[in-house]
Design a protein around this nucleic acid. Structure first.
Length: 302
DNA sequence: AGCCAGGATCATC
DNA sequence: GATGATCATGGC
């Protein structure tokens, strides 16, 4: 790998191991590779394809890149990307205090401590991933994403490993519904993906535009204006890509199962109980959702 | 075999 | 504005 190592300081309530475990839980995500205590991901930095390697040491992340030298700006971009990806610059102690007030959830504050809301910084990727994941099980969803990425995404090969970028919108606009159906996307889902790709290619939608909007409700409206994006998808995307703190993907199958599991509801129809429960987590709704999702995967006892 | 999956849309009441 | 049917396909 590259000679230069970039250091990113991390706060006390940050645990890279917990984040890695989440990334690697039971699924096969093609957008990164988790190794033993390290993470590799291909990034497009200012037009350069750069394989990034991340490890944790003491209170910092050690980041090295495959390409020779990055300019100061490019390095700044990379650091910002990683800080955003792992939501590093956030004090989680208020959230843990809230969890500890509920005996059903208090264990999360210790077992999951240091786990950050792992995001999807690229907005286009986040939207596509949310659409892919609509109404199908995650195992199948990850398969679909892999087929899409391996067919239409840019790639590099380094030391025998193959690493991918998520496909560009402009590439997907040249793809037909039938092409995607061959990969076992449903017709409607294929349609949605192409609509979103066209909107991005035409610059009708973008992360900067979304961030510039006045508030959460306006952002939700901007997203749900696109066919195929309902309120669940909008909230998922805002949580994962813009790090909105108060997004609740109501109706989410995983969220409902987690709330059943923790006996916060006894029936998936109890929408009012769900809203009431989240009312105590103002400003931390997204984190609570994320920790609920985390709770659905169980670590093997060794 | 049958229900479920990190839903959205459209028609209809 | 609420509900219900329909879509679509693999996992378990």
């Amino acid at each position: 790998m590259g000679k230069k190592i970039i250091l990113i300081p991390t706060p006390p309530d940050f645990d890279f191991g917990e984040c890695l475990w989440y990334l690697n839980r039971n699924f096969d995500d093609c957008m990164y590779q988790v190794g033993k205590a390290e993470l590799n991901k291909l990034l497009d930095i200012n037009g350069k394809l750069v394989l990034v390697n991340i490890k944790a040491l003491m209170n910092q992340l050690q980041v090295s890149v495959s390409e020779g030298l990055l300019t100061e700006d490019e390095e700044g971009f990379l650091v910002g990307y990683i800080e955003n990806w792992f939501d590093i610059r956030l004090d989680l102690s208020p959230f843990y205090q809230l969890l500890e007030q509920d005996e059903r959830l208090a264990y999360m504050a210790t077992e999951f401590r240091g786990l950050r809301l792992v995001g999807i910084p690229e907005l286009f990727e986040a939207i596509c991933w949310a659409i892919i994941g609509q109404q199908i099980n995650l195992t199948f969803a990850y398969q679909l994403k892999r087929r899409l990425v391996e067919k239409y995404g840019r790639r590099i090969e380094i030391e025998g490993g193959v690493y991918y970028l998520f496909p560009e919108p402009a590439v997907l606009t040249g793809v037909s519904v039938a092409d995607l159906q061959e990969m076992q996307f449903s017709r409607s889902k294929a349609n949605y993906l192409l609509i979103v790709a066209a909107a991005f290619a035409d610059q009708l939608v973008g992360k900067a535009q979304l961030i510039a909007m006045a508030d959460l409700q306006i952002r939700q409206q901007a997203l749900t204006a696109l066919k195929g994006i309902g309120i669940w998808t909008a909230n998922y995307v805002l949580m994962k890509s813009l790090k909105e703190r108060s997004c609740i993907p109501f109706g989410d199958a995983g969220l409902l199962n987690a709330m059943l599991k923790h006996k916060i509801i006894s029936d998936k129809q109890q929408t009012q109980q769900i809203k009431d429960f989240f009312a105590d987590y103002k400003g931390w709704e997204s984190y609570l959702v994320f920790y609920f999702w985390r709770s659905l995967s169980v670590k093997a006892t060794s």
